[in-house]
Amino acid sequence: MKITAFAGSNSRSSINKKLVTYTASLFNQPNTTILDLNDYDIPLYGLDLELEKGIPNDVLRFSNVLKESDLLIISLAEHNGAYATVFKNLFDWLSRVDGTKGFHNKPIFLMASSPGGRGGASVLEIAKARLPFNDGEVIDTYSFPNFPSNFNDTDGITDAELKSILLDKIENVKSQLKF
C-alpha cells in the first residue's frame, strides 16, 4: 500500500504538516511519502500562462506522485474560512493535467487543523464537497481543534479523546481499503 501525505500549506512550521506527518506514521506502512509543497516550484495559475508555457514540470511531477499512490492523506490549512492559496493554486493546476480532473480517483483521508476550536471545519466541509468533482474519493474526514493545546512534537496528539477519534478513523480507512 503506497501512501502519500501532504499539508495544504506552505508554512515551514505548518501545524497541518505536523498533523499529516503524525497521522501518516500511525498507518505503519513502510511505503509512505510525505510531500512538502515548498519543494515544488508552481507559479500562480492563469490560463494565459498555461497557454503560453503549458503545465509546469513540478505540477506534472506532483500529479504523477498522486497517480502512483493508493491513499492520499491531506491536511488542509484554513485561511479566512477556505483553502490556503498554495493549495488552491496546486488544485487549479492539477485540474488541468491531461487525463485527470486532479486526484486520479484516489481515496483521500481528508483532515484539517487550526489553533481555534473549530479545527478547520470550514475548509474541511468545502474540500469534502469539492474534491469528488475532481476525481478525489473522500473516504473519511478528521477535524483537529486547538492544535497548540492538543499536540506536541514529542507525543503527537495529547488529548486522549481526540487521539481515540483519529485512531478509529484510521482503522475505518484501513478497513475500507483492506489494508
Rank of each mutant, 00 (worst) to 15 (best):
Lys2Ala: 04
Lys2Pro: 06
Lys2Trp: 03
Gly8Phe: 01
Gly8Asn: 04
Asn10Ala: 03
Arg12Asn: 11
Thr21Cys: 09
Ala24Phe: 07
Gln29Ser: 13
Thr32Tyr: 05
Thr32Asn: 05
Ile34Phe: 14
Asn38Ala: 11
Tyr40Glu: 06
Ile42Gly: 09
Ile42Arg: 10
Ile42Cys: 11
Pro43Val: 15
Tyr45Pro: 06
Gly46Val: 01
Glu50His: 02
Ile55Pro: 03
Pro56Met: 05
Val59Phe: 00
Phe62Asn: 10
Phe62Trp: 07
Phe62Tyr: 14
Phe62Ile: 12
Lys67Cys: 12
Lys67Glu: 15
Glu68Gly: 11
Ser69Phe: 11
Ser69Asp: 10
Leu71Pro: 06
Leu71Arg: 06
Leu71Ala: 08
Leu72Asp: 06
Ile73Met: 02
Gly81Pro: 07
Tyr83Trp: 12
Phe87Asp: 05
Phe87Val: 07
Asn89Glu: 09
Asn89His: 07
Leu90Gly: 06
Phe91Arg: 08
Trp93Ser: 11
Ser95Trp: 08
Ser95Leu: 08
Val97Tyr: 11
Gly99Phe: 13
Gly99Glu: 11
Thr100Tyr: 04
Lys101Ala: 14
Gly102Asp: 09
Phe103Asp: 00
His104Gln: 09
Lys106Asp: 00
Lys106Val: 01
Pro107Cys: 02
Pro107Glu: 10
Pro107Leu: 04
Pro107Ala: 05
Ile108Asn: 10
Phe109Tyr: 13
Pro115Leu: 09
Pro115Tyr: 06
Gly116Asn: 13
Arg118Cys: 00
Gly119Met: 05
Ser122Thr: 03
Val123Ser: 07
Glu125Asp: 14
Ala127Leu: 03
Lys128Gly: 07
Arg130Pro: 01
Pro132Gln: 06
Pro132Cys: 03
Asn134Ile: 06
Glu137Ser: 12
Ile139Arg: 05
Asp140Arg: 01
Thr141Arg: 13
Phe147Glu: 01
Pro148Glu: 04
Ser149Ile: 00
Asn150Arg: 11
Phe151Gly: 07
Phe151Ala: 08
Phe151Lys: 02
Ile157Asp: 14
Ile157Tyr: 14
Thr158Tyr: 09
Thr158Cys: 10
Asp159His: 13
Leu162Pro: 08
Ser164Asp: 14
Lys169Glu: 11
Ile170His: 03
Glu171Gln: 13
Asn172Lys: 14
Lys174Phe: 04
Gln176Cys: 14
Gln176Val: 09
Leu177Lys: 04
Phe179Gly: 02
Phe179Thr: 00
